[in-house]
Each structure stands twice: as C-alpha cells, then as structure tokens.
Design a protein around this nucleic acid. Structure first.
Length: 478
RNA sequence: CGGGGCGUAGCGCAGCCCGGCUAGCGCGUCUGCUUUGGGAGCAGAAGGUCGGAGGUUCGAAUCCUCUCGCCCCGACCA
C-alpha cells in the first residue's frame, strides 16, 4: 500500500491520484466517475462540515433535507437553468418496474425543488427571510471525472435563501462569500481570492455569481466555493411571492451557495508535497501522531517509554492525537506512513529521549532535520499546541507566498500569453465576452474572477486595449 | 464524442511482435526466527477463469473477429 509516490514535478495528475489512494482518502468505485470516500477522507470532510456548519448557524441558517428526486418539469422552468444542467442530468425513467409518467431527475442542485417548496411556505413579508441549508449528495453526469474535483456524485452543502429585497439578497450572497473566504483562509490555510464571475462563467440562472478561487500546487486555479445572487429568476419561475407591508404582491429575491468535497481536493493540491499530504492542523483528522520507539528485547525500556507516552497523552487535552505503537513496523516506516497521510505533527520518543527527559517534535510541513526540535517532556503538551498554531500559520504563509510568486501583472497581450503558462495573470478586462473567448481559445485560460478588492483607477483591456474598469484574474483552471 | 494508453495474483508490472513443457517478477499478505532513532533481514508458504465471447490451430496470455471496462489528454463542469 505504501509505495513511493511519483514526484509532483514529474506528473502532477498521477501524484494527485496516488496520494489520495495511498493515504486512503478515497478509492475508485465500481461505477465510472464515482468514488468511495474512505474513513480518513471522510474524517477530513467532517471537520470541514463542522467548521462551515457552525458559521452557517451563527448567521441564522437552519439545516433541512429536500428530496433526491426532482420532477423533470421543475428543471425546465428556468430557461438558463435547463440549458446549463440538461446535458449532465441523470434521469430516472422507471420505478417499481413501470415506466414513470414523468421522468425524475436525480438532483444536480436543488434550486428548483426548494424554490417550489418556498412558494408554498412564503406568503407574507413576515415569513422572510428564509435561511435554509442542506448537506446532501448531488449527481452530475460528468464527462471527465477526477477524484474529489469532479465526480459524478459528490457531497456538498447547498444553502438556499429567500429575501424581501434585492439589497438583502445581495448582502446574504456576500455574507456567505465572506464565510467561505474566512473558512478557506483560516481553517484550510488556502489563500483564496473572493470575486465575481464573468457572465459566461456564472451559475445557470443566476444574476451574479461569486466565487473563491485558489491556486493549486501546479499553479492552476480551482473554484473552491460559490455564492449566487439569483435575483428574481427562480422566484418568478416558481412563483415565490409574498405580500408586502403595503399589501402588494412581490416576488422574492433568492440566493444559493455551495461548498463541496472538492474542498478536499483543494486542500490536497494546495499543500501536498512529494512526500504526500500536508493537512492544515485545524482540519486534520489526526493532528499529532506519537511514535514510540521501543527495543523489543529490553522490557524495562519499553515500559518506561510507554509510560512516558501515556503521561504525555494525559496532558494533551483537546489535541486530536494517535499513538502508533505498532512494533512490527520500523520507526522509519511509521514516520513515512504518517507523513504520507499528512499528519501535521509527530512526537518521536525512545529510550534515548527518556534519558534526556525530552521528546522529538517533528513538523510535517518542514521535512527532515530542519523540522525537528527537542522539547522537555514536561513541556510537551504546551509545545504541541503552540507548534500546531505555528504550522497552521506557516502553511497559510507558504501558500500565499507561492500564489503571489506565481501571480503576474502583464501589461501586453504577448506578455499575458507567456505568463499564463506559469500561473495567474492579473490584468484589466473590458468586460467584452469576445475578449474573454479570444483569451480562452489562445491560451486555455479563463476568467477565474473579478476580485472584490480592486485597486481602482481602471486601465486597458489586456486583450483588446480598450479602456477597462476592473482588474481580473485569468488562469487555467480545473 | 475525438485522440492516446491499458486490462495477466490484493497492488505494480514482464511475457504477446516471432503460438509450445508447470504463466513469471517486485511489493504486499501469512508462518517462524532475528530486528527497531528515516521505507528491516533471513527462511518458508499461500495466492491466477491471463477482462469477456467466438474463431484459427494438434496446441492460444500470445494470431484473427467481435465485445465490455478502466485510465490519461481535449470539448463540458462544483
């Protein structure tokens, strides 16, 4: 199971798949395009869930569950929505041995069925806002699947809210974008860029889509979360109306937003190295692994080491730790396995340490001697807690420096074409879809987002040279 | 759907071009002994409808026809 993995520089796609499978995050399912999330991968997902769920609840959202099956006619009610999703629908035509009168779609996303329910639940401005989220699986018939990044079935949360005014809906959309940004940066240690999608990249049926965009280890971009201002498009398609205080019927303004198991892919690719995963301490299923080194033929040494391990464990409090005392595996083997699995911190403890009243603390993010420090046994717990914080901060710093070092600001189209091979390009864009298309055709780069944070002052469109208001992030994306 | 590659032991592969004895190798697994501060050593053992169907042949993993599946690159996408 634990073989050498191919270096990232040699074959990034292969590295990615090998890391996932060898670290036991996920496995291929017998059905093409589907994956099995294994316990280690799911534990990471559970931590992602918990962090996001807490933030949703703090901002007034509630969880609920809507059906997996959606009547085909629902999907067809919003024009852009059908067009966007029709090609990737899984459709149930038979049930109980009989052909169905109306085919059922396996949800690719739930705006339609939730919109339908909202139309029944919402009557008055007093019913608003409705703030609901669901944790669910969805299905999209993807042509080219990739573990975590694009599988036919994936897990996510999808929030769906309804509001009395556009201002409120916009506020909500941006509030969620803030939550996603905060989560990515402070929990996942991924320095994302929050921004707005171009018309061609926005969600089918949305007025405006917002995204957080991250840079992966191969300098490609990954959309790690989206938040959509749906305007009144779905409210009109599903007749979500309320009576306002002035006795007038109004359509609601709705939003939807989601983060999926793709986030796991982002964490893997943003931080991983040639030794395997590197997980951010705040999300890592196991934050600390303790590897006792005990000579077999010296029973008293062994007991002393294990006693010291027990004593340390008792002081660790809320640290998520694991003691790997498998004696049939050599210490080197155990070190390598936990490094592959990305456990942020390791304690090595053997007879040699005991006689010095110390343990070895080894950081996952800095391999080898460089990342090792000796700490007195008495201070072990404190040192662990501090070191986990340090690692978390350093990982964010490293990822930010990497992104910045690979983000360019070309001033000519020729320069743009060159730098886009090696990272992100920050450049002005006039807003014309023709320029967007041209850039995509000639460089494979797409507009990832128009960052919320703008330097202002405007400039010239990198493609056509006309005057342009906004700085835009171009990149090749997953 | 277009282009490329691959299906042989749990995993990774060789053998195929040029048909031939009992289908090999590495890793892993199991047993025993020795080992333990960076992927342990020795000895032994188990493990196969060669993706499937049909055909050619005295004889097929190998040649022919059909078929199923997967992976990678593109178009589409969280």
């Amino acid at each position: 199971m634990f073989d050498k993995i191919v270096p990232r520089s040699e074959d990034y796609a292969k590295w990615y798949t090998q890391v996932i499978r060898q670290a036991e995050m996920a496995d291929y399912a017998p059905v093409r395009g589907c994956m099995v999330v294994r316990p280690y991968g799911y534990a990471l997902w559970e931590n992602v869930k918990e962090q996001l769920d807490t933030r949703f609840k703090e901002t007034g959202h509630q969880n609920a569950a809507f059906p997996l099956f959606i009547p085909m006619s629902f999907i067809e009610k919003e024009a852009e929505h059908v067009e966007g999703f029709k090609p990737e629908l899984a459709v149930v035509t038979h049930g109980g041995g009989k052909k169905l009168e109306e085919p059922l779609v396996v949800r690719p996303t739930s705006e339609t069925i939730i919109g339908y329910m909202y139309s029944q639940w919402i009557q008055s401005y007093r019913d608003l806002p409705v703030l609901i989220n669901q944790w669910a699986n969805v299905v999209r018939w993807e042509l080219r699947p990739r573990l975590f990044l694009r599988t036919m079935e994936f897990f996510w949360q999808e929030g769906h809210t309804a509001h009395a005014s556009h201002e409120e809906a916009e506020e909500e959309t941006l509030r969620i974008l803030d939550i996603y940004t905060d989560f990515a940066i402070n929990e996942a240690a991924i320095p994302v860029i929050p921004g707005r999608k171009s018309e061609s990249e926005k969600f089918p049926g949305a007025l405006t889509s917002y995204t957080i965009e991250a840079m992966m280890g191969d300098k490609r971009a990954l959309q790690a979360g989206t938040s959509h201002d749906l305007g009144q498009n779905f409210a009109k398609a599903f007749d979500i109306q309320y009576l306002d205080a002035k006795q007038k019927q109004q359509h609601c303004w709705t939003t939807s937003w989601g983060v999926s198991t793709r986030m796991i892919g982002a964490i893997i690719m943003a931080h991983g190295d040639d030794q395997g995963l590197v997980l951010p301490p705040r999300l890592a299923p196991t934050q600390l692994v303790i590897v006792p080194i005990v000579p077999k033929n010296r029973e008293d040494d062994k007991q002393a080491v294990m006693q010291a391990v027990d004593a340390i464990c008792e002081t660790l409090g809320s640290v998520r730790y694991h003691v790997d005392d498998r004696q049939e595996q050599s210490p080197g083997r155990r070190f390598n396995e936990w490094e592959l699995k990305g456990v942020p911190l390791r304690i090595e403890i053997g007879p040699r340490d005991l006689s010095n009243q110390q343990v070895v603390l080894a950081r996952r993010d800095i391999l080898g001697k460089e990342g090792k420090t000796f700490v007195p046994i008495a201070n072990a717990a404190e040192a662990v807690t501090q070191m986990l914080d340090t690692i978390q901060a350093d990982m964010l710093k490293r990822a930010t420096e990497f992104r910045d070092a690979n983000t360019f600001e070309p001033t000519t189209y020729a320069a743009f074409k060159e730098v886009i091979e090696n990272g992100f390009a920050r450049a002005h864009w006039c807003g014309d879809e023709a320029c967007e298309d041209k850039a995509r055709e000639e460089t494979q780069a797409t507009i990832r987002c128009i960052p919320i944070e703008q330097p202002g002052g405007g400039g010239e469109c990198i493609v056509c040279g006309k005057s342009a208001e906004d700085i835009t992030i171009f990149a090749r994306a997953y």
